[in-house]
Simulated assay, not measured.
Amino acid sequence: MAGDTSDPPEQAPLTGLLDRVQQAGQRRDSVSLGAILESVGRRSFAPFLLIAGLITLAPLIGDIPGVPTLMATLVILSSGQLLVGRDHIWLPAWLLERRVSRERFAKATRLMQRPVRWVDRLLKQRLVWLTRPPAHFPVALTCLLIALAMPPMEVVPFTANGAGLALTLFALALLANDGLMALLGYLLTGSTLALVILNLV
């Protein structure tokens, strides 16, 4: 099901997922979003969240104009389909064909390897009532709210990074059944959205 968790925490879920992502589209000079998503599977919501969060956070990629909005589109489509009960996430071809150069992609993923290993050591099963069904529905609703707010975040410094981090925290929570990550995600979402509102009013 789309709301199911993926790898158990003892398998270092974030490191394992990054390893798979690095193999995406290896024989091409650019990497498509479709290739990245196929490398992690199209039946689980958590990897979609994690890809969107990490790309928004990633140096050399997340700071490209329009990338936060593109990732917001991915989150809106995937979270919306989870909320209506789809067990396989569909995405339009125009979104899947969005590309980044192989050089930029490889450099960004290499920079993420050390922090990813560090984060994996922090993950463990706790407060699981915040991650197991039906708790994935409020997570999806919150991520949908984050995604809807991401386009204006492109003009408010650092708020898109906060959104990317919140999405990453929710993804980690679902992947590792770590409710503490979900709790941190809710807190970060509230503070980031408050900052956006204060800067736009």
Rank of each mutant, 00 (worst) to 15 (best):
M1I: 14
S6M: 11
P8T: 11
P9T: 14
Q11L: 15
A12H: 15
L17A: 04
L18H: 08
L18Y: 10
A24T: 07
Q26D: 14
D29Q: 11
S39I: 02
V40G: 00
R42K: 08
R42I: 09
R42H: 09
S44H: 15
F45L: 14
A46E: 07
A46D: 08
L57S: 07
L57V: 02
A58F: 04
P65R: 02
P65V: 08
T69H: 03
M71V: 00
T73S: 04
L74C: 06
L82T: 14
V84Q: 13
G85N: 05
E97I: 01
R98Q: 12
R98E: 10
V100I: 06
R104C: 13
F105G: 00
K107I: 09
L111R: 07
M112S: 06
M112Y: 09
R114C: 00
R114P: 07
R114T: 09
P115C: 05
L127N: 10
R132I: 08
H136E: 15
V139P: 06
V139Y: 04
L141E: 09
L145Y: 10
A149H: 11
P152W: 01
P157K: 04
N161Y: 15
G162Y: 08
A163E: 08
A173Q: 06
A176V: 03
G185A: 02
G185L: 03
G185V: 04
Y186G: 03
L187H: 13
L188H: 09
T189V: 05
T189A: 05
S191M: 11
A194M: 13
A194D: 13
V196Y: 12
V196E: 11
L198H: 15
L198T: 15
